[in-house]
Simulated scan of single mutants.
Amino acid sequence: MLLLVSVVYTLALVIASLITLNGVPSLGSSFDDKIFHVVAYIGLSFLWVYYFKPFKTKQIPYIVFFVVVLLGFILELLQYYVNPNRTYDTYDFIANTIGAIFGTFIAIQLNVFKLK
C-alpha cells in the first residue's frame, strides 16, 4: 500500500510540475510557489524513506535524498523544454532541495529510518 501511495504521489508531482497550473491557491506571500515546492518535496522524500525502511540499509536515506534532488532538477529542466508556459527556475530547484533535506531529516528524526 505504501508503495502505491509513494508512486501515485510521485506521478502527481511529476504531472503537476509539467502542466500549466491555473487557480493555485494563494498563501498571501510573495514566495508561495517556493513554499509549495518545499512542502511537495518534504512529502516526496519522507514517503520514499519511509517505504524503504524495511531494507535497513544506512545508505537508503542518502540515496532517496539524492534521487529526489535529481528528480527535482530534471523536472525543472523538463519544464523549460516540454511546456512553453513553464520555465526553469533555479530558486525552485533550491526549494526542492530544501524540501528533500527536511523530508529526509524528519523521517530520520521520527525514527522512521534509524541510522545506527
Rank of each mutant, 00 (worst) to 15 (best):
V7P: 04
N85T: 09
V38S: 06
Y50G: 06
A16H: 09
L70I: 12
Y88V: 07
K114D: 14
T104P: 06
I94K: 04
K116D: 15
E76V: 01
I42T: 07
Y9D: 05
D32H: 06
F73H: 01
N96M: 07
A40D: 08
G43H: 11
Y88D: 01
I101A: 07
I42Y: 11
T87G: 08
S6R: 06
K56G: 04
N111M: 07
R86T: 09
V82I: 15
V24Y: 02
T87L: 10
L47I: 12
V39E: 05
K56C: 08
D32Q: 04
L75E: 04
P84C: 10
V5G: 03
K56A: 14
S30H: 07
K116L: 03
T104V: 10
A100W: 11
Y50S: 14
W48T: 03
P61D: 09
G103T: 12
L77Q: 13
Y51W: 14
I101D: 03
F65L: 15
T20G: 08
V14N: 02
V64Q: 09
V14L: 11
N96C: 07
T20K: 13
G28K: 05
F93E: 02
T97A: 14
K116C: 00
F65K: 05
L78T: 03
N85E: 14
Y80W: 14
Y50T: 15
Y62E: 04
I98W: 05
F31C: 00
F46I: 07
D33I: 08
L13Q: 10
E76A: 01
V7T: 12
F113Q: 07
V49I: 14
F66M: 13
A100N: 06
S6D: 10
T57D: 13
W48I: 05
Y9L: 14
M1Y: 10
H37C: 02
I15P: 00
I94H: 05
V24A: 08
F36N: 03
A40S: 15
Y9P: 07
L75C: 10
L47P: 05
Y9C: 10
L77R: 12
V82R: 00
Y41P: 00
I74C: 11
V39R: 00
Q79C: 08
V7D: 05
A107K: 04
L44Y: 03
F52T: 12
Y80P: 00
V38G: 06
Q79P: 05
L3Y: 13
F46C: 05
F102L: 15
N96S: 06
F55E: 09
F73D: 00
P54A: 13
